[in-house]
Simulated scan of single mutants.
Amino acid sequence: MTEQFKKGDKVTWQSHGSTAEGTVQKKITSDTEAAGRTVRASQDEPQYLVRSDKSGNDAVHKPEALTKKSGS
C-alpha cells in the first residue's frame, strides 16, 4: 500500500535531478486546480500539495513520488 501523508509532514522528492524538501499542505482527493495546473485525483488515487522549503513554491505530487523525512 502507498504511504499516506498528512498536513505538516516533512517530505522529500526528486526534482530536476536533485532532492527537494518541503511540507505537505493538504491531501487532494478530487479533480481541482492547484499549483498552476489541473490535478486529477480521487479518494483511491490522492495527490498531495507540498510547499518547497527552498523556493516556497507549491507543487503537487503523487504519494509514490514522496518520501517522509525520518524524524517527522
Rank of each mutant, 00 (worst) to 15 (best):
S55I: 02
P63F: 00
K6S: 12
G8S: 03
L66E: 01
K7Q: 13
H16D: 13
Y48S: 01
G36T: 10
W13D: 01
H16R: 14
T67I: 06
K69Y: 02
A59V: 07
I28V: 14
T23W: 00
T19Q: 14
T67G: 03
V60S: 06
V60W: 03
Q43S: 09
G22K: 01
R51Y: 01
L66W: 04
Q4S: 15
T67S: 11
Q47I: 00
S72P: 07
E64D: 14
H16E: 13
G36P: 13
V24Y: 07
S42K: 02
E3L: 12
Q25T: 08
W13L: 06
A41H: 13
K68Q: 02
S15T: 13
S42W: 03
T32N: 01
S18E: 12
T29H: 04
K62R: 09
E45W: 15
V60K: 04
H61M: 11
V11Q: 02
W13I: 01
H16L: 09
G17Q: 10
V39C: 04
A35L: 06
A20Y: 00
A65R: 11
Q43N: 10
P46T: 09
Q4Y: 10
N57L: 12
K7M: 01
I28R: 07
V24F: 05
S30P: 05
E21R: 15
L66Y: 02
A41C: 12
S55R: 06
P63S: 03
T38E: 07
E3D: 13
V60E: 04
A41N: 12
L66K: 04
V50L: 03
G56D: 05
E45G: 06
T12P: 01
T23S: 02
S42N: 06
K62P: 03
P63T: 02
S30Y: 13
Q47P: 05
E64H: 14
V60L: 04
A35W: 07
T23N: 04
G8D: 02
G71W: 00
K6D: 11
A35S: 14
V11E: 02
L49T: 09
S52E: 04
K10G: 01
E64I: 11
D31Y: 03
K54M: 06
T38D: 11
S52C: 15
T19K: 09
R51D: 00
T32Y: 05
